[in-house]
């Protein structure tokens, strides 16, 4: 498992299902992450959960985000492309009590250290909505750089919103002292 200053990243566990299900049933949270929310019956959710538990690490690696032994969210490195040493990142935190406390940016910093130093990836890409200021700040703080906008690319809660594409690349990450100092104590 990987230790940050505030969070621990570890494998998903069967027992995380309840918390994960509640997280996905929260309309506001889900909209901020995926742009749409539809009702999902618990059996379908369980199937999805089993898919996540058994996903092949060649392609997709899922981390449970833990604070004080409690599952508070999930971070995934997915669509791992070994030829280009490239992958996509997604992160979701459960419940308003866990949001705005620096857990997300701590988890992001730790996972970049893992992705670049241990897993030998070169580029991590993510997308978010232009209206999600808090997410944008967290990604920037963790070392992600905005590199493009897809205009009006999602319909979000009554309006069209731009999609912001961001990435972190290894050479830049290695130069960034603030992040590199994490190397010493991230594990």
């Amino acid at each position: 498992m990987l230790k940050g200053e505030k969070v621990v990243l570890r494998a998903l566990q069967e027992e995380d299902f309840e918390a994960w299900y509640r997280m996905n049933d929260d309309v506001d949270l889900t909209l901020s992450g995926t742009g749409r929310w539809v009702p999902v019956s618990i059996d379908i959710a369980r199937e999805r959960w089993q898919y996540l538990l058994h996903s092949s690490p060649e392609v997709r690696v899922n981390f449970g985000i833990e604070v004080a032994d409690e599952f508070i969210g999930m971070l995934s490195i997915k669509e791992i492309d070994r030829h280009n040493q490239h992958a996509l990142l997604s992160i979701a935190l459960s419940g308003p009590v866990h949001i705005g406390r620096g857990y997300g940016r701590d988890a992001l910093r730790v996972v970049l250290r893992w992705a670049f130093q241990i897993h030998n990836l070169h580029r991590i890409e993510l997308e978010t909505w232009a209206t999600n200021e808090r997410a944008l700040r967290a990604y920037r703080a963790a070392g992600f750089v905005e590199e493009g906008r897809l205009r009006d690319a999602v319909w979000l809660d009554g309006q069209f919103v731009d999609v912001v594409i961001m990435s972190a690349i290894r050479p830049e990450w290695l130069q960034n002292d603030q992040v590199a100092t994490l190397k010493a104590h991230a594990l």
Binding site: M1, E14, L53, N62, I118
Partner: peptide, 15 residues
Amino acid sequence: MQMGGGDWYPEPLAR
């Protein structure tokens, strides 16, 4: 785990 296999990633018990 790195000393053994070079890599480390989280493995769920289910796997």
